[in-house]
Design a binder for these strands. Structure first.
Lengths: 388, 388
DNA sequence: TAACTTAATTAATGATTTGAAAGTTATTTA
DNA sequence: TAAATAACTTTCAAATCATTAATTAAGTTA
């Protein structure tokens, strides 16, 4: 229970100013005062603190509007650095970025072959050590390490409970890394990290609620409300992939029937292709996309159908979570060109009210590094802690 | 953007103390200080204000634990009153309650027959006037009027956009009542109001997130997060009834196929009964329940199947919103005895992780007045404004 | 060039509110 | 009855922002 103290007062104002600078840089002190309602002396004194701490810096003067030129303020992007890790099914990738998400160093290791928890953890550590050595940045300037881990993650304890594609369970990531590095460690599910990264780096402005959906081998999603990840009470919110949309559908790897991902992940697309055109030889989802690009009607049609079903899943999402924006990413969305028309059409068709039909649905603009940037954003959100 | 001011500090602490008293009454000043971390002088001075405002009152002394006896504090339940209105498909009900939800007056009017917006609004006004006259309570002691309206509601403007069962559209409830009464007016969808009422009066303690689901003519739900209604960005969050769970299901009144409510509302139960046992004469859902009570196997089986499908819907809810508690109510849930076993079984079966299988699922303990109390809670939440 | 504007800092004063320490009151216990 | 204990209150110090005003800076405009 956060009491009302002087400290609260101060930190609230400090965060308001810091976030104003972050979202509106370059901006002058006078402008901050005008927009936040704080008085110029208050703004001046807090900005001074921020400058002393190194988080904010002054730059060139701005344009005069009839008087003295304002001194413009910026986030001092290289004041601190963050380490982000994407621990996917096939490899570990690790980056070091500044506060704007600019990547300075990058390492990676393959996860192919048989792995133990210990081996996995030491691969993580080795990559982080390598990044630290390469960058030669003092530990004090690093805010922490964010880890986007595929599978089921317990956020509070920082454990990976189930990592299906590595065939591992119960990996105490946070505990082990804390022993090794004196830094804040955040562990999060990869789709959720990606969602946060999307809301942080995706240029979506001030959106009250957003869901980012990753469609690839599986279907995962993250829910961001007021700039913060919404976990639900068991870190399961947004588990879109195993939403039942067809009582009599195929059996999913989870044991249930008719999960969304049995219709729309890569394998499902291939399967549907083979079923409908039973003269089809071996083919991959990527090849279906490529053939669609070349105008092959069957492939175009299969992708269009896939878009329809994604649209049905998203409509369920709109009716339950009702975000103002949905961002789509992942391997399957590379076929955006053939998927989006039917996705949007289906939502128009099925959403109940005119306002909900207007939900913004779009493809991510962050490319392959979306998850890595998500891992990074886990720590940036802490630092900037948006006030709503 | 809420700045950090002395006022903020004060109101935060005041709300902490007020809510501590509300949830833990009777409680002494010393105990409040201990549990909130505020210092005794701070507690004393704020309690004094609350007593002066009439919201809190002192009662008998408590038991000594080796020193001066503590003075116990209570919410002064008759300091203020609230008017709650349930505008359902068939009638308008109106109550006046005190701060604990105790009902003091009650009126109602039938909505049968052809109605215009004007007639509907004057019925509302007449009921409210009647309540005011009966109770003889001064307007100053009434916090406001909460209205639980079936159908689609725009909360911000306080308009009923679509009232399907009355065949009305676009009723400016808040505007019209504001002209008539100098009171705060809150308009909310009935299922959502019910959800808030459930979390407020249902004795669930401090639950971080809760969904209340109403299964009757339709299926509606409300999402309560940290004691506050979560609306989503278009007042649609929790629109469970039109979640697609079967791509090839029957056509719903909304035009889509396979909506949850085409499987589990009253009509659906009757329809399934007729389909499976095609020698069945006219029957109502209520009769199916009664026959099940008398041991008729067919009816027991139909209700069991219904429970299964409700369970599938709730599992989708668990995976998307992931609340820590789900409370079920509405006419169909009167068959609780035959529904709950399969509901719980299905969730056990289908929920993905062991923690999510543990989601508490239960039937509401508030009876027929759940929606009315929900309407009342719309204003109580404002007054007590839970701090999280 | 003089007069006016706008930006930013500094300083003084005041208001609000919590916090810490000490004091008062009521009760139990030895 | 005195000492101890707990509940509550009073007093004063500290934190912090708002307000006001003065100062400096660096323009623009007449």
């Amino acid at each position: 229970m956060q009491r009302g103290t002087f400290q609260l007062m101060k930190t609230v104002n400090k965060k308001i100013i810091l976030n104003k600078i972050r979202t509106s840089e370059p901006i002058s002190r006078a402008q901050i005062a005008k927009e936040t309602g704080l008085t110029p002396p208050t703004v001046s004194s807090i900005v001074k603190e921020l400058v002393d701490e190194g988080l904010v810096k002054e730059s060139k003067l701005g344009e005069s509007s009839g008087g003295r030129k304002p001194t413009m303020l910026h986030i001092n992007s290289d004041a601190f650095y963050v380490i982000g890790v994407d621990a996917g099914p096939e490899m570990v990738e690790c980056v070091l970025t500044d506060l704007t998400g600019e990547i300075y160093q990058r390492t990676s290791s393959s996860l192919k072959g048989q792995l133990s928890n210990e081996r996995f953890l030491s691969l993580l550590k080795e990559n982080i050590y390598a990044i630290l050595q390469l960058s030669k940045i003092e530990l004090e300037k690093i805010i922490g390490i964010g880890i986007a881990m595929h599978g089921v993650v317990d956020v509070e304890s920082g454990r990976s409970l189930i990592a299906p594609n590595l065939n591992l369970r119960d990996i105490p990531i946070k505990d082990e890394l804390s022993k090794e590095f004196d830094l804040t460690i955040k562990v999060e599910n990869d789709a959720r990290a990606m969602a946060l990264g999307e809301s942080w780096f995706g240029g979506h402005g001030d959106v009250d609620s957003m869901v980012a959906v990753n469609i690839g081998h599986g279907v995962g999603a993250g829910v961001v409300i007021n700039g913060k990840l919404y976990h639900g009470s068991h870190d399961m919110a947004g588990e879109l992939g195993h939403m039942t949309i067809d009582l009599h559908g195929d059996v999913c790897m989870c044991g249930n029937r008719g999960c969304l991902q049995t219709f729309v992940n890569g394998d499902a697309i291939v399967k549907r292709m083979k079923e409908q055109y039973n003269d089809v030889e071996e083919i991959t989802a990527k090849e279906i996309y490529e053939r669609a690009l070349q105008g092959e009607a069957a492939c175009v049609q299969i992708l269009g159908e896939t878009g329809n079903i994604i649209g049905i899943g998203l409509t369920n999402l709109i009716h339950l979570i009702n975000p103002s924006k949905i961002v789509l990413g992942g391997g399957v969305m590379k076929s955006e060109k053939f998927l989006m028309p039917t996705i949007l059409e289906t939502i128009q068709d099925r959403a109940l009210t005119s306002k909900s039909k207007e939900t913004a649905v779009m493809v991510t603009k962050l490319g392959d590094d979306a998850t890595l940037l998500g891992a990074v954003s886990l720590l940036l959100v802490e630092l900037f802690d948006p006030v709503s």
